[in-house]
Amino acid sequence: MTMKKQIKNVLMSYLVSGPSLLLIALIVVFPIIYTFFISLTNMSVYHWFDFTIIGLENYWRALFVFDSGFLSALLATVLWTAVNMVIQLVIAFILASLLNVKKLRLRKLYKTLLMFPWAMPGYVSILLWKTGVFNSEFGLLNQLMEALGQQTMRWLSTNVSAFICCTVVNLWLALPFMIMIMDGALQSIDASYYESALLAGASWLARTRYITIPSIKPIIAPAVIITVFTTFKQFDVVYLLTQQMGARTGSDFHTILTYAYENAFVTNNYGYSSAISIIIFLLMLAFSARFKLAGEETL
């Protein structure tokens, strides 16, 4: 290939991918840089135009002043991610195993029905849970309590019960995907392994531990990492159930994203909120680096 043609090809490449990259630069990259700039200022609703640069004060407040609430939100988010992931993996594994029991004829029907929570628009489901199940007047839970002669409750009003409710809804939303991934992974295991294990007299526990889990681990790993990310970044469940603007239920349970949102759009502490955003972004970057995200080998 001649030099001239090569240069032409390179220029062509830039030209063709230009619009997409320009869009990303304008809507994704530049706002992040601008967020970083805001995080160094005292911009708030009182200082919309006449803000001043105050250096790293916002970061200091987030990381070293415990009362500010960021550290407790971060702690709650870590706890939230851990609890959700553990329960999700255990339940998905059990259900996927049960779905793979031989001679279960209606397997396909069950699978289809269990996919519904994933297929529904997420925000619609969450709002249906909020009004249909947890609502204190006509929610199903309180109707059940009444039928059982128990005291009705405001389910989303305290931290612990809000955390539990959010976890239930999040599991409901996330389990179908995980079940499908596990199901696919289980089906990919060579049946002959089990046959020889059975011949050797291995118990169910031994088979699970030495054959099933090691075999599915590499297959489900990418999906698990994605799910850890989406759980850690969860906003919709917590926001829509308990933190809706003008309709807060009284719970203080925040994930870091709802915390950042509240500081930006409810208390209008733009500088501080931007500092939180940048800290979260750095955490995510560290996390991605740790798990070597996304097809580096295909670059």
């Binding site: 706002p31 992040i32 805001i38 994203l257 949102y261 759009f265 996304a294 097809g295």
Partner: peptide, 17 residues
């Protein structure tokens, strides 16, 4: 890849401004 992990909601205020 790294940008893909950035939750859009975090820069929403900056975009607004």
């Amino acid at each position: 890849v790294l940008l893909n992990s950035f939750p859009a909601i975090l820069s929403m205020f900056a975009v607004y401004r």
